[in-house]
């Protein structure tokens, strides 16, 4: 079955919304009624049909709108896409990973024909068709990473592995939760995670780094991360914070359902074979509180997680200002019944 791509916006009039199928597709991030940092890494293997886990690279009804929003952001600020010169091999590895995944799992929308290093790529929704020589930059209209990630949902960072560390040496980041690729590019694993509170003290990053350094070809992993966003806005970069920061003050008891969004990142990592780099994909999903409460288990749990969230984490995620208003609104949807363990709706 082909996807029906929606015509919607992530800025201006903010017409973004989820269909009932997209709500059930959403990767709800809380497996119990409270939240604390954990390494929470699991194998990125195909999961339940109709969910964000069904395929390694998830394309959904928001595909065209996401790609349009990325193009607008890049037109305004090209520094959201950068790659240090030694990352070219990893860029090509990324082209291969994304094209083969998309063509295999969404054959009605994408196709890839390979004859040695002669590749033929067709992206029907975006009306793109290119024949190119794999490994030859001059045969693509853009640099390899930018070319393919302008056609694939999610942000991507390429991590070079050397000297027992991972270095964020390339990336395209247009829908991030308040961090700057331009500032962080070139940093080591712990350096770019430096602003995250509490997690360093409990050794999260030591364990995560050791695990990732040993990642093997063909064994991708994933984890979920989350925050909240006011208005369905993809571009919440520090660069544009003067534009969107004020949104956080606009939450009222009347508009919580439409304005407050749970924003989940499905972060997946693959070892890239020819470059020995790692790709870190950050695939974001937005869900309005009004959409969330259509799933009774999620409404109860969201309410309880927000109520018990440590204040440091609430501050880091930037939701202190509207946390209570949201809790009050959600309380109407929490009847106090117990919830079942796990992410999925009952």
């Amino acid at each position: 079955m082909g996807l029906m791509f929606k015509d919607e916006t992530y800025r201006g009039d903010f017409t973004f919304a989820n269909s009932p199928a997209a709500i059930r597709h959403f990767p709800f991030p809380f497996h119990e009624d409270k939240y604390m940092y954990a390494v929470n890494i699991e194998p990125h293997v195909p999961g339940r049909k109709g969910t964000a886990y069904e395929f390694p690279i998830d394309i959904d009804e928001h595909y065209l709108a996401d790609m349009r929003d990325r193009a607008i952001t890049l037109a305004e600020d090209p520094l959201r896409c950068q790659s240090l010169p030694h990352m070219l091999a990893a860029e090509w590895d990324l082209v291969e990973l994304l094209m083969t995944s998309m063509a295999r799992d969404y054959p009605e929308h994408f196709s890839l024909t390979r004859d040695g290093d002669q590749w033929h790529w067709i992206n029907r929704p975006m009306k793109i068709e290119d024949k190119f020589t794999f490994g030859n930059v001059a045969t693509l209209p853009l640099r390899p990473m930018e070319y393919i990630t302008r056609q694939c949902q999610g942000d991507f960072c390429l991590l070079d592995q050397r000297d027992g560390d991972l270095w964020m040496d390339a990336g395209i980041v247009t829908s991030q939760a308040d961090w700057s690729l331009d500032f962080d590019i070139g940093m080591s694993f712990k350096e770019w995670h430096a602003p995250v509170p509490m997690a360093h003290e409990i050794g999260i990053f030591d364990r995560a780094l050791k695990f990732l350094l040993a990642m093997q070809i063909g064994h991708p992993v994933r984890r979920l991360n989350w925050t909240m966003t006011i208005n369905p806005r993809l571009d919440t970069a520090p660069e544009t914070y003067p534009k969107w920061g004020i949104d956080r003050t606009t939450v009222t008891p009347e508009n919580v359902g439409d304005k407050v969004h749970l924003r989940v990142e499905l972060q997946a990592l693959w070892r890239l074979p020819r470059s020995n780099a790692i790709v870190f994909s950050i695939r974001g999903y937005l869900l309005k509180m009004r959409e969330l409460v259509t799933i009774p288990k999620w409404s109860r749990r969201m309410h309880r997680v927000l109520k018990t969230l440590p204040p440091e984490i609430a501050a880091y995620k930037g939701l202190s200002r509207y946390q209570q208003t949201t809790i009050d609104w959600l309380s109407k949807y929490d009847d106090g019944q117990p919830t079942s363990l796990g992410f999925f709706p009952d």
Partner: peptide, 25 residues
């Protein structure tokens, strides 16, 4: 713009990060 100076440092830029301090008010 009035910048809050974060302790976050970029070696590539040789600089600390400054972020608007009063965007929300």
């Amino acid at each position: 713009i009035n910048l809050f100076v974060r302790d976050h440092y970029s070696r590539r830029l040789g600089a600390f990060q400054g972020v608007i301090i009063d965007a929300e008010e």
